[in-house]
Each structure stands twice: as structure tokens, then as C-alpha cells.
Amino acid sequence: MSAIGEPILELKNISASYDAISVLHDVNITVRRGEVMALLGPNGAGKSTVLKIASALMRPTQGSVHIAGHDLTGAAASELARLGVCTIPEGRGIFPNLTVRENLEMAARKGLAVSVIQERAFARFPILAERRTQLAGTLSGGQQQMLSLARGLATDPVLLMLDEMSMGLAPIVVADLYEQVQAIAAEGVSVLVIEQFARTVLGIADTAVVMSHGHVRFSGNASDVDEATLSSAYLGTK
């Protein structure tokens, strides 16, 4: 499947910095409807910063962020969330001191009842139904990731962004989760997956962006990402 739909997330000429250290230089990324994009690169390439900017947790010093054609540069993260941008940050995207049910309730808003969210979440991950009154912090790592995924998906997002979902999880759990991600994309949701480990995610991605040192080094079909591209980005060799 190649990129076919209209652009959902467009990052145009983005530059960003932490205090005096600039971490992104003129980055352009476009995610289209129904597309799974893998954002790859070594530690420190600027992947997570791209995600922070795309979800409005951080402001770019230059450039603009467009969601479904609207310029939303400088909007609050909560606004983007309400518009259907769902971000699951690095680590476990859950509230450890809230119960599973309360975690799901956090996604509820006008026009989206708690009962609907629960129904959808429990249908996708039945194990969560058994644990609904348990504190989320007491779940296993894989279950926590399921919970955050379930909560994100219950909101009918147009764009789902996942940061290092595989971190600290057993390979079999990771494979399970990515199967779910593929199913989600098939429903028409755009997905941006950030991973340090390229092979896990290239198998399910349509397109890929490879970054290093704050620059986009490659942008194109996932199948076109070859050893040479990766090793030059990760190891700095030509």
C-alpha cells in the first residue's frame, strides 16, 4: 500500500531547540490518511522531539504544524487531543494511580461517552475488562501499553503517534501490539511509529523517515529502506 490519502499531519520546515542547543534542522514530514509511517533513527536523532512538536507539547522555533490541512502551530496539546490527535508518549502512557476504568475515562469528552470507550477498549483487549478496578500502575508492562493503546483508539483518532512502544517489553508482546497497530491503520487511521529498532517496525510500515542529528536523511517507501541507509544513519558511515 502506498501513500494515497490526503495529508493528515504535515510538519513544514520545522526547526527546534532546547535552550541553546538546536536539535531539529528544517524537518519536513507528511503523514497521509491510512498510512503507517515509521520514524527511525539512532538515539539523539530528534525523533521524540518531532513527536513533541507534532503533539504540541513543544513549540518549534521555526516552521509550522498542520493537522488535516489546518495550521495549528502553537495550539495547546489538549486542543490537538480534542481534534483527534492521539499521542502515546515514551514509557507507559498511563496514569499509574488511577484505576483502569478511570484511565479510560480520561479519554471521555463531549460526544464520547465513558461507556462507549469502555466497550471499545474491552472488545479490543479483553484482559483489561478483568482488571477494570485495578490501579493501572499494578498492571504488567504489556497490559499497561494495551491500556494506553486502547484508550487512544477509543477516541476515534485521525492520527495515532506511538513513541518507542517496544521499550522494555518482551518481543512476543511487541509483535502482538504491532498487529493491533496494523489493524488500526486498516480502519483508516494514520499512524506515526517511532522506533529505535528498525526491523520490528519496517515490516508493518508503508513509508519511512530516517533521521540522524536532527536532519531527515531518508524519506520514502518503507520497502526502500536498505542496509546502506540505516547504517549510514545509525553508524555515520557512507
Binding site: 489538549s78 487531543a81 480534542r82 496514569f95 494511580n97 478511570e102 475515562e105 480520561m106
Partner: peptide, 23 residues
């Protein structure tokens, strides 16, 4: 109440709460 759950969620993880639409 939703307000109460959001209150507790903000303490747990401020930016995550924001990513879930809380202010």
C-alpha cells in the same frame, strides 16, 4: 466526577493528561 479524575490524572502525569485533552 470527570473533574476529579482529571485532577488526579494531572498529578500522575501532567503532559500525558494534556495529551488526553485535559487542561
Amino acid at each position: 466526577t470527570r473533574l476529579g479524575i482529571q485532577m488526579r490524572a494531572v498529578v500522575d502525569d501532567r503532559s500525558l493528561a494534556e495529551l488526553n485533552g485535559a487542561r
